[in-house]
Amino acid sequence: MKLLAGIHHVAVISADYARSRDFYTRILGLEVIAENFRAERGSWKLDLRLPDGSQLELFSFPNPPARPSRPEACGLRHLAFRVDALDDVVAHLQREGVACEPIRVDEFTGRRFTFFADPDDLPLELYEGE
């Protein structure tokens, strides 16, 4: 029996909602499904869709605590996006002023990848291929 069918969504809390909203929608091109302001929490919730149907939830909260984002901190290490043409995506990000690490090759799969960060320094990866 298959227990898990896939990832439905990943949730991200931003320090600057407008800046992160722009980053994930305009720069990364994610589709807006719904956007709601929760007055009782002073919080925005933005539901975004990736082309494969998976989702990213972007939240804002007043004064969120800092999160350790060192690459080897315990917990979620990074969020990886699958891309078809890594060079094209890196070039697009660089035109938008987003710094990317040098492209590397996964020693086990032979696939190319790189890392960059969102506006809150959340580590994001671009992984080419399946």
Rank of each mutant, 00 (worst) to 15 (best):
F37I: 06
W44Q: 10
D47I: 07
E107H: 10
D118I: 08
L46W: 02
F59Q: 01
H9P: 05
A15D: 15
K2Q: 14
A11R: 06
L30K: 03
V105P: 06
F59I: 05
H9Y: 10
L58A: 04
P123Q: 05
S69E: 12
D106M: 00
L126K: 02
E96D: 12
L86Q: 08
Y24P: 03
E31T: 15
V10S: 10
E31A: 13
Q55S: 11
L3E: 13
S69I: 13
F108N: 10
A91N: 07
L3N: 11
S43H: 02
E40T: 11
R95A: 15
P102S: 00
E101Y: 04
F116A: 01
T25M: 03
F108S: 09
T25Y: 02
V83W: 00
V90S: 00
D120M: 03
R111M: 00
G97F: 05
G53N: 10
E96N: 14
V83T: 00
D88N: 10
G42I: 12
F61M: 15
S14Y: 06
V12P: 03
V98K: 00
R104F: 11
R38H: 12
H9C: 08
T114M: 07
L122M: 12
A39R: 09
D87L: 07
R95D: 15
E72I: 10
F113N: 01
F37Y: 15
R26W: 06
L28R: 05
E130R: 09
R111I: 00
E96Q: 15
R95C: 13
R104I: 06
P68H: 00
H78L: 11
D87Y: 01
S14T: 13
E101C: 06
S20F: 07
A117I: 02
G42W: 11
L28D: 07
Q94P: 02
L93E: 03
P51D: 10
L46E: 00
D118A: 06
R112S: 11
F113A: 00
L76Y: 14
V32G: 02
R112L: 08
R41W: 14
D118R: 03
T109Q: 01
Y17G: 02
L124K: 02
R41Q: 15
P119V: 09
R41V: 05
G6W: 12
E57T: 05
H8Y: 13
G97S: 06
L126V: 08
E35D: 11
R21G: 01
E35W: 05
S60T: 11
I13M: 13
F61A: 14
F108D: 12
T25K: 02
V83E: 01
G42R: 09
E130T: 11
D16S: 12
F23G: 02
L28G: 07
L126H: 01
S20C: 13
D121T: 11
M1T: 13
N36W: 08
G6K: 08
W44S: 09
